[in-house]
Design a protein around this nucleic acid. Sequence first.
DNA 1: AATCCCTACAACCGCGGGTTT
DNA 2: AAAACCCGCGGTTGTAGGGAT
Length: 283
Amino acid sequence: MVRTPSCDKSGLRKGTWTPEEDRKLIAYVTRYGCWNWRQLPRFAGLARCGKSCRLRWMNYLRPNLKRGNYTKEEEETIVRLHEELGNRWSAIAAQLPGRTDNEIKNHWHTTLKKRFNHKSSTGTKDAKNNSSDHPIKRVTSKEKEFETNLKNLLINPPSPPLILESSLSASLLSPQQPASSDQSQNSSITTDNTAVSSSVSYNNNNNNHNSDIDMALFEAYEANSGSFWTEPFFSDDLFMSSDISVPMMDLTNFEAQFPVLDGDEEILCPSGFYDEFEGLLNF
DNA sequence: AATCCCTACAACCGCGGGTTT
DNA sequence: AAAACCCGCGGTTGTAGGGAT
């Protein structure tokens, strides 16, 4: 179901994302935002192309994504919108909070298209046949994992993290990162709060593990909130006084939460922060 | 138990459009 | 005006998972 990790000519990794890569990406984007997808992997310490990072974040890592089975209402909406809009998956996804265009596209091709085509070709005959209208869907292990995570979250929801006024940081944008150029990047961070959680499953043949990055990751931030959420600009002094436009971030607390970052790896601070974390935090 | 085959979906690729230089 | 850059979209592919035989 997933692609075997490999490298392209330029040394950039391709294929399945590892938990370590996901942690790095989540850590970086939640902290610094996606100020420039093309540059981001370099600062985040990821050997990935920007496109790959963007795709991973937008489709799987960002909060407020729904995963798992589609409701009947959602499926009806997809079918209806597809009739109206055709293959404009992003437009369709815009009407379905928490669903991504990629996910909808996949669901259409694997399930709805057949059902829809079958229906339209057989007319009302199949309308009486529930089994053809709603074929038994295989419940995959991933869906089971997701549901388990979701249940755990509902039972033990994380308490809201602290957000201080210091997060209003537009004024700290650096000269080389003018605020006026941030519109497209900022729009990449969703502020949609309708969804439930963010959960990611892995299938990695190399180490043969299935693990989740779920709310625990965001809780990790929260657990560290004493310094993390309340001091989002701890490196600003360094930044302001440095000739380097993208100084290295202090990983003192970070590594405690994300030990995958070894001493050689760097997470670099871009030129500013965005104050859009609220969307990530309103679980 | 082993193998085959189909399904689901994560991820890649190419392209077009918008913005910046 | 045009080249360069970046982002987002839609089509497509590769393969793990799981049912069927």
